[in-house]
Design a protein around this nucleic acid. Structure first.
Lengths: 207, 207
DNA sequence: GTCTATATAGGGATAGAC
DNA sequence: GTCTATCCCTATATAGAC
């Protein structure tokens, strides 16, 4: 791996572990065993590094959110969608932990994140509309629209919520699947009896 | 107002306006036309000021969340509850904007906020259980429990969500009532027809 | 209680040699 | 591309006079 890529990889790791405000450019250079000057040869500023990480994030999340090649036709598909979204969020969790501050500091990031958030909502809406048309989800348009927003909000802030509410050493992996179940339970009242049962079964298996 | 109180009041105002990380102790002193030295005579550190503000917040939110003197018996009561919660959140919104960072920095704050969050969930649960027993809310226990958590999560992060999603100059007041409606729409599918109609009416009035 | 002056520390970032 | 050395700036916090 080239130095330029290593900087981004190391920064991401440290940001996720320590929180972006607690990680200085010197820390990053130290961790990589390079000099601070070298780091600044590759990136003009700390925000430049963050911006590069964000672009990597954006590429990944867009792939998940573009519905082109997938036809969501069952509850499992929705499950799958949520799982992928939460995976990407976990990989770039520092972005979500300090979202407002980062958006205020880096204007590009604000605009791009806003668009991604809208996409999340739209994708959730598309999936549920699809399920509704297949009679797998029994809810009117208004309810579905409201659920879609709610799913986007919950996915975005679930990690913060679980940090706020659980003990610190609570297993990372569990937090994620807990979040997915949390969302599925919001949808549960509108599922068919068969899918409700499936969800209950999965609950006992995973939680 | 004594200087000690003015410091807290000014700090709260600046934190809310500029974001806590962007406000230094010098800014606070400047804004008050006192010297930085004087500020440090009254408070040992910046975190000490934040801790004092937090205690003021805690007192207010506990009053809202203690259900002792209120018997929630109608949809309007729930509305009222949400309104009061959102008011307090708005008054201390800087806490919510940088929640994770502040919790990591100030250990007391973490523990206390955790307890308050649990109370929010419990109060929402109590209200809805009450409504359910009066047949104003038609949902099973599992659904109600899930809704209660969802309400606590949404109330906590609604402000961040609206900052993330809306234009910056979007009216503060509207953001709040928008959040209340958002929560009410989550509950709507389980309301009586009469209350659903009431909600729709209020929607057209307020949004 | 309040001021002025200052210590201390650390972070972001650059210059110039190699 | 990489290093060393260093500059600049700002933030928290303290000392000591009034």
């Amino acid at each position: 791996m080239k130095t330029k890529e290593r900087i981004v990889a190391t920064a991401l790791q440290l940001f996720n572990e320590e929180g972006e405000p607690n990680v200085t450019t010197n820390h990053i250079a130290d961790e990589m065993d390079i000099s601070p000057g070298n780091l600044y040869y590759h990136y003009r500023s700390k925000d430049d590094i963050i911006w590069q990480i964000f672009q990597n994030y954006e590429e990944k999340i867009r792939q998940v959110l573009s519905q082109k090649n997938v036809n969501y036709a069952s509850l499992e598909d929705m499950w799958f969608y949520l799982h992928m979204v939460f995976e990407v969020i976990a990989e770039f969790r520092f972005l979500y932990r300090n979202l407002i501050q980062l958006m205020n500091r880096i204007d590009f990031l604000k605009r791009h994140f806003r668009r991604i958030l809208a996409m999340k909502s739209q994708t959730a809406l598309a999936i549920m509309t699809n399920l509704s048309e297949k009679n797998l989800l029994n809810a009117d348009k208004q309810t579905i629209a409201s659920l879609a927003d709610q799913i986007a909000l919950t996915a975005t802030f679930w990690l913060n919520y679980s940090i706020a509410i659980y003990d610190d050493d609570f297993d990372e992996e569990k937090k994620l699947s807990h979040g997915i179940f949390h969302i599925m339970r919001m949808v549960a009242p509108f599922l068919t009896e068969k899918d409700k049962a499936l969800l209950d079964e999965l609950s006992t298996q995973y939680l």
